[in-house]
Amino acid sequence: MKILKPSFILFFFSLIISSYAQIKVYDFEEFEPLLHNNSDTTYVINFWATWCIPCIKELPDFERVNADFKKQKFKMILVSLDFGKEVIKRVDDFRNKRQLSAEIIILDDTDANAWIPKIDKNWSGAIPATLIYRKNKWQFYAHSFSYDELKKEVEKFIN
């Protein structure tokens, strides 16, 4: 009985900590290495923002794909381009409200003209957009995805 109370407290405490894991803000220099991981993992990097309706429309499908491939060499990162006042809190609230489990980071680098071509030289900068890569195999999609379409593309990399 004596042990029960502190372990309950610890349990709830850990829940709170995990659900409020701080979303990190990157500038492009810090972000770029995430695009060049040399392991065998297939990466899906999605560029979105909380105010972008087509972006948030496709997130449930992205989450489903993330769940499908979670046990394989696969990682999904949802890169938010949100900006302005209390951006971390806004994105965090959005994540909690929509119960998003994929990793979320914020990319905040205003010199977009410099880094957009480093993602893809034909990308105009419009979102949503998604990059899928595994080692040196790299494919950029300047459009939104349905569940089936995204799953099909990921399978091209993972197999």
């Binding site: 972008c52 309706i53 087509p54 381009l81 977009a112 003209n113 957009i116 071509p117 990308w123 105009s124 900068g125 419009a126 979102i127 949503p128 459009h143 939104s144």
Partner: peptide
């Protein structure tokens, strides 16, 4: 030059 922006919403696109 390029910039991040909101994609243009077109009724005719699947997008």
């Amino acid at each position: 030059t390029k910039a991040i922006g909101c994609s243009i919403k077109d009724a005719r696109n699947v997008n």
